[in-house]
Design a binder for these strands. Structure first.
Lengths: 204, 204
DNA sequence: GATAAAAATCGACACTGTGTAGACTTTCTG
DNA sequence: CAGAAAGTCTACACAGTGTCGATTTTTATC
């Protein structure tokens, strides 16, 4: 029996609409998986979420907005995970840990991440979301490189520029590998780790 | 007066349609530049080429076919340039030359190359075209790495796998840089070259 | 637990872009 | 110059999008 608990003003927080919103995003993710973005229609999403097109437009103004929301939801998850990085670690260990975490992220969210990348050009908001995410990674890579002794300037062979290139290498390599299989992803990770280590001058 | 030259069976080779086809592709490229793929409509292309939509469908079955043809035309150009590679060169020189050539390619054809990459997922034919192109580059990088002393096996830290990752690094880095400016492209090239050299163990 | 406001839903409509069909015109070829 | 081939046009049918006003359901409040 729901007595009047003091901290109970939270009860009404679960509007019906919140459930629907989640249903819409979940359906969108599912459809993305086996129809692809272009083939997926607003009607499909609505149907999957158990409402009509008209009702869906109450929640989101367009197909793009739906996908943007989905990307935002996923990307937020990435940020949480990234915040938990063991920053102050020995470079070699830090690199290994980062790559391992990246494999996990792509295993869990590969589909949405690929979609985000694909739509970065077309949908400015997704582009921003993804750029911000990339910047986090680049900053992390830069930090590791510098701790490994790479200079910190802005020249093309110094830490920030190298970190950027390495980030794109990882993004693209994982993008392709995650379309194939978990094994490929693991191999890709090993290759990227090796190149990262070499670039950091840690080939002792 | 067009007399009956022996080698004149070539006269009829320039059908009116050939001119139109070229006009369509040129228009498509122009529109791609300042409207983007999604915003560009079949009607726009037709209008730019001086015909109606109906007439355009005589040449190409869809918007995707038009863009595929444009990509094919561009990519063919890339292949020609690639064939002229000075394969047998000292690694350090080979890498510098390859990067220089890549900068030129992206300066000339950046727009279409970016479009090809964007549509690789959506349009299978473009995906194949681009994959084939990437494979050429990967093979070239592999050759250089091996000549520089990197082992030739299939393990993640041996030549082919590394070449693949380096290729994606270059693709993605140039993709982003070519959206900004020629200077950025030059910087990007320097960074990629540095990482490639390091990966090849040529940091004497 | 009645009630009024807010939230959610629906069906119909207008609009834009796609691809097709059939009739018509131009251009080649013998 | 006649028939065929190549090229072009207008009109149509169809898919999907986004908007609107009417209607129903939920939720908060007394």
């Amino acid at each position: 029996m729901p007595g009047h608990h003091p901290a109970r003003s939270r009860r009404a927080a679960e509007r019906k609409g919140d459930v629907r919103e989640r249903a819409i995003l979940d359906t969108c993710e599912a459809l993305l998986a086996h129809k692809g973005y272009d083939a997926m229609t607003v009607g499909d999403i609505a149907q999957g979420a158990g409402i009509t097109r008209g009702a869906l437009y109450f929640y989101y103004g367009s197909k793009q907005e739906v996908v943007t929301a989905l990307v935002a939801r996923t990307v937020e998850h990435l940020w949480e995970r990234s915040r938990a990085t063991a920053e102050a670690d020995e470079p070699r260990r830090a690199i290994a840990a980062a790559m391992q975490r990246t494999v996990e992220l792509w295993n869990e969210h590969g589909l949405v991440m690929r979609t985000a990348i694909d739509l970065s050009l077309t949908v400015p908001e997704i582009g921003e979301l993804w750029n911000h995410t990339a910047d986090l990674f680049i900053a992390a890579i830069t930090a590791v490189l510098e701790r490994a002794g790479i200079q910190a300037g802005t020249a093309p062979d110094q830490a920030p520029a190298m970190a950027r290139a390495l980030c794109w290498m990882i993004e693209r390599t994982f993008y392709h590998a995650s379309q194939e299989s978990r094994e490929k992803l693991q191999d890709a990770s090993a290759t990227c780790e090796h190149i990262w280590l070499t670039s950091a001058g840690l080939t002792t």
